[in-house]
Write a protein that binds this DNA or RNA. Structure first.
Lengths: 80, 80, 80, 80
DNA sequence: TAGGGCTACTTCCATC
DNA sequence: GATGGAAGTAGCCCTA
């Protein structure tokens, strides 16, 4: 009752495709959730554009911080 | 022990930002999961580029179906 | 009467900026022309939304053809 | 040798589609030209990212200026 | 004012 | 490891 290598490869491929599509669906759902939160904020009188900019800036700051930490580790590796 | 309107607005804003950042984090996690699946597929000898194209094509097909429905609505708007 | 390297670089840069802005202007003009054609069609009683979808679909069909060629290349890369 | 109204509408539609597709093609060509200019600038040692930002900023400045002019006209319409 | 289309940016992958 | 090109994503704008 064994399968040919081609069948095995087919099954693997199908499995990969299913896993990817499942994850993409989840991602799309979350993206919609985010839109909903912005809409809700707007409904309460907040400035969505500014809110987006604020969130983006915080993300940039976090990324820069992470980069600094990474640099620090490198320096510690050299001098520490 | 009540708060000023400004404080209330501030709290709201903070809450929105937190919700958004939480969701963005989840989204980023899922994006990484997807990358991992592609990497795993590659590790098993599959052609990642072709796999991506396949997944994209399936998505497009699904979208086309949805779009046909939309066109139908448009035509109904004309003839209905 | 020769120029310093900095001046040369400045002149180059200015030239690049001018060329880009000229092209961007042309592009914007054409984008407006396209809008105008849609408006004109609308003025003659055509359904703009459906027209847009039609044009988009034709473009997608063309792209799909090109993509099939690309897929062929990929497969040739695998089996060739 | 006259045509039915349906045929006339068809011909019109075909004409609109052709005009649009022609313009879209021109637009795509110009977009490629712009890319080429950036590539050329890069080839001469310029920082493309910074150059893009610079061009974008100039555009923004121009838009704001245009907006001010529009405001001025409005004011002139009121007070002039 | 919500939605969809367009544009621009960023990311990602394959190649050298 | 850089670079070029393609894919995906996010923000903006405009119409209905």
């Amino acid at each position: 009752m064994s399968n040919t290598p081609e069948e095995v490869a087919q099954d693997q491929l199908r499995s990969f495709v299913e896993r990817i599509e499942r994850l993409e669906e989840e991602k799309a759902t979350i993206a919609m959730d985010i839109k909903d939160v912005y809409s809700e904020a707007k409904g309460q009188g907040h400035n969505v554009k500014a809110l987006r900019k604020f969130v983006a800036r915080r993300k940039r700051d976090r990324d820069e911080l992470a980069e600094e930490d990474a640099l620090l580790e490198i320096y510690e590796g050299i001098f520490g």
